[in-house]
């Protein structure tokens, strides 16, 4: 159940961005990632979610455990809110979207086409998808973008409930969610480029 990262090195566009990363995420824990724009937080989350291979190092316990939410929500504008959620529930083989609808207060929007939602409402729908996946480890990239204060509270509450059920969460965010969680500053792990005259096998 726990996620273990050891001595991870990741690259974006062939250039190493972060190296020497090691941490563990136990059930019930949350970890907040911080770092300036372009420091490699998104790349790190995508690597952990299995969308791209690491340069070196190991990721244990991620296989089929992770629910990932990136910058785009994967919402189909011509499907209604409940149709969007139903689809993901079926793909992940879970039952019922009622809990997700309730947690993010989507009940009155249920039968509206997702294309008509505001940016914040869409984001809520995107985040509620995490609940229907039934996966224990949430990997979230800037989840609070375009959310208002009330929705942020709603989201923090959902994360807290998830942690309470033995789940865990890895979140890249700049705002304080009021969670009792550790913070990982990625800045110090910035990868040093290999020596310039290192003209063998690889290019960078």
């Amino acid at each position: 159940m726990s996620l273990r990262i050891s001595d991870l090195c990741i690259a974006r566009g062939g250039i190493p961005v972060l190296e020497g990363l090691s941490f563990a995420l136990e059930p019930g824990q949350a970890l907040i990632l911080r770092g300036p724009n372009g420091s490699g937080k998104t790349t790190l989350l995508r690597t952990i979610a299995g969308l791209q291979p690491p340069v070196s190092g190991t990721i244990e316990g991620a296989e089929d455990m992770i629910a990932y939410a990136g910058h785009s929500d994967g919402i189909k504008p011509t499907l209604t809110v409940s149709e969007n959620l139903d689809f993901w529930a079926q793909v992940f083989g879970t039952e019922g979207i009622a809990a997700a609808i309730e947690a993010f207060d989507l009940d009155i929007l249920r039968d509206r086409p997702a294309g008509e939602l505001s940016a914040g409402q869409k984001r809520r729908l995107g985040l509620s998808r995490m609940l229907v996946t039934g996966r224990p480890i949430w990997v979230l990239d800037e989840p609070t973008v375009s959310l208002d204060a009330k929705s942020v509270m709603m989201f923090a509450e959902a994360v807290r409930a998830h942690l309470g059920q033995g789940g865990s969460a890895l979140i890249a965010t700049h705002i304080d969610l009021g969670l009792d969680s550790a913070v990982l500053e990625v800045g110090p792990f910035k990868a040093k480029l290999p020596a310039i005259d290192d003209f063998d096998g690889a290019f960078l």
Partner: peptide
């Protein structure tokens, strides 16, 4: 719209 990322995971 990012659905492919989500489908891949």
């Amino acid at each position: 719209d990012g659905s492919l990322d989500l489908l891949a995971t």
